[in-house]
Amino acid sequence: MTRWRNIAAAASLLLTAGGALAQPERSPVAIPATVPASALPAADALFTDPALKETRAVIVLKDGKPIYERYAPGYGPGTRLISWSMAKPITSTLIGFLVADGKLELDTPAPVPEWRNDARAKITLRQLLHMASGVKHIEAGPAPERADTNRALFADTSADIAKAAVAEPLEVPPGTRFEYNTLTTHILARIVSDVVAPGATPAERKRKVRAFINDRLAGPAGMASLLCEFDPQGNLYGGSLCFATARDWAAFGQLYLDGGVVAGVQVVRPDWVRFVTTPSPTNPGYGGQFWLNRKPANGKDEALFWRAGPPDAFAAIGHLGQYVIVVPSKRIVVVRLGKTQDDVLQPVRDGLAKLVNSFEPKGSLAVSK
């Protein structure tokens, strides 16, 4: 993308003999006068403050243009970085394409054959997207080896992650309780595969779904590095395992900041952008696989920074401190990628809140703080 040309040229001069990048203190880009003076130190702090480590990449876009880009040693513009649960909004976007194509409907029963003859038959696609299916899934807990997500990703049920995801029983009526869990998104990913590649072999299933991702999302959105993984049955790891460069994660955020439009082309329908960023009935802090900067149902600080605002911010968030934060009122996208244990993430959230809130809302005459 042309907006990265100067950055890429400068970065290429920083390659060492071992192939690692000796990173600059700040990105080699022109900083517009409208960028607040406190923004760059707030972004730098994500690398320099010991409480905020380990940050591996930070990018800030303002009005679609990069104003900050920095990497930890050993990482650079070409490094694909793991999504963890930032894959969930990717899967949601794929579902959105199929809804737009008329191949899926939000408020009809989710097309899961294993659920046709029991109470789960009433679960809708909307409820799956809102993490309110009512199905019993264990995301985490004191015995991580027993958690459904860990077993399906890394242990005894990993040979067919979709089979494991749809096998669990109903625990509460659909649409009555928010229960964040990764296997719900793997069910959504299985639905994508079933629609895109019905009856296909695992290899053909994988090929067709990957082509669908490239043709509908990665290509049009300028995310050439996007690579999502599949299980042995050809099921997309739609809740956890996608990889992309920091720049391409920023491009994903910009896609949603611009209402689904890229270079004048409507890639994601505006009604889907509205849907995924609208508070869900069972949790105001969650939309359609995106986290919202609203007070969550449990009142805890575990996603964004609802106590600090702004209320229109929303984000793709992943395990160990992966963030793509979109703030329409300030016309910014903030990407932070790294490896910070989840139980010590609050300083990172505070640091991101400070960075986001260093920018004035669009239209404000103030340019610094």
Rank of each mutant, 00 (worst) to 15 (best):
G134S: 01
D194K: 05
A10W: 00
R5T: 10
R146F: 11
I95T: 09
T157Y: 07
R116P: 05
A159G: 07
R80K: 15
G78Y: 14
G222R: 07
A315V: 11
P328G: 12
Y237R: 11
P144T: 07
R146P: 00
F314D: 06
V265K: 15
R177L: 15
I90S: 12
A197V: 09
T91P: 11
L52K: 07
E25L: 15
A263C: 12
W115L: 04
T34I: 13
L61F: 01
Q233A: 14
G363A: 14
E204Q: 14
F230T: 01
V334L: 10
V268W: 12
P270F: 07
K103W: 08
N117W: 00
A39T: 11
R146V: 05
M131K: 08
V324Y: 03
T149V: 12
T2N: 13
L106P: 06
M223T: 08
G199T: 03
R5G: 01
T282G: 01
V334F: 06
V265W: 08
S329Y: 03
S329G: 03
G175E: 02
P144M: 09
Q346G: 10
S83H: 09
F359P: 05
G260F: 11
G96T: 09
V324D: 01
L46D: 02
T182E: 04
P198C: 09
G134T: 02
Y68N: 03
G76Y: 12
S364L: 11
P24G: 08
M86L: 05
P347Q: 10
A164R: 04
D107M: 02
K362Q: 14
A167E: 11
A165W: 05
T157W: 07
I123L: 08
R331Y: 05
R274K: 14
T149F: 13
D148R: 01
G134I: 02
G76S: 15
